[in-house]
């Protein structure tokens, strides 16, 4: 509730908004962003105050030694190293958590990028192929197996998770998950020449019954 209010107030909502998450991965990253923004704002304010003060004050110069201890060693070395060590640890821990790890609940789907649009197939329903719409179950972790048929693309559903590239000759796996059934917009996020702007798709997250029905081959 609190987060929703904040998101609305700040104008963050939007079908493609990184800061209006609808899944665990995107939510972790959105939280990371707010932490980063808050920290960056504080540090920026500090640096600006320190830059502005010499224009106002009029006391004489201190010794070189003292200056180096305060400015270079204290603020230049120790301060950023402490902040960065904490941030790095935080970033790596989140990164580890977002990796696609094996589990009973995990569903696998395949996404193939091409300059004509995305094509999706489903190992659990061998005969189903959908273009421009990816079907997933809501509330379950989904591993998207990403490949490409021509140039480099990237699979990105901003409200669900970060993006991952589709690279010729390589297979990449991205973990996504939607909290609730619904439709989420997705984008191809690596420049692929003319037509790049229109290279989009949607993700439809089904409830358990809907997912079973989809796998059973009912029309969309």
């Amino acid at each position: 509730m609190g987060t929703t209010t904040l998101v609305t107030l700040a104008g963050c909502e939007g079908a493609l908004s990184v800061v209006d998450p609808a899944g665990p991965a995107a939510r972790e990253i959105a939280t990371l962003w707010w932490v980063l923004l808050a920290g960056a704002t504080l540090i920026f304010a500090l640096v600006m105050v320190l830059t502005a003060l010499p224009f106002l004050r009029r006391d004489g110069p201190g010794s070189e030694r003292h200056g180096i201890r305060t400015w270079v060693i204290g603020l230049g070395l120790a301060f950023p190293m402490a902040v960065l060590a904490a941030l790095l640890a935080y970033g790596l821990v989140i990164g580890e958590r977002l990796l696609p790890r094996a589990g009973d609940e995990v569903v696998e789907v395949a996404a193939t990028g091409s300059r004509d649009g995305w094509l999706f197939t489903y190992p659990d329903a061998a005969d189903r192929t959908t273009s421009a719409v990816l079907h997933i179950p809501a509330g379950r972790p989904v591993d998207v197996v990403i490949t490409t048929g021509d140039v480099i693309h990237a699979f990105w559903v901003p409200r669900l998770a970060g993006k991952l590239d589709a690279i010729p000759g390589h297979v990449n796996i991205l973990r996504i998950e939607a909290d609730a059934p619904g439709t989420y917009r997705g984008l191809s996020a690596e420049f692929s020449g003319a037509g790049y702007g229109d290279l989009t798709f949607t993700v439809t997250a089904h409830d358990a019954a809907g997912w079973t029905a989809f796998l059973a081959g009912e029309p969309e």
Binding site: I29, L32, W33, I43, K163, A189, E190, F191
Partner: peptide, 19 residues
């Protein structure tokens, strides 16, 4: 520089890369 530190965070970069 500060936004640079942000994009140095791997998960955050997964979101904002190429935006």
């Amino acid at each position: 520089g500060l936004t640079g530190v942000m994009v140095a965070m791997v998960p955050f970069d997964w979101q904002v890369h190429d935006t």
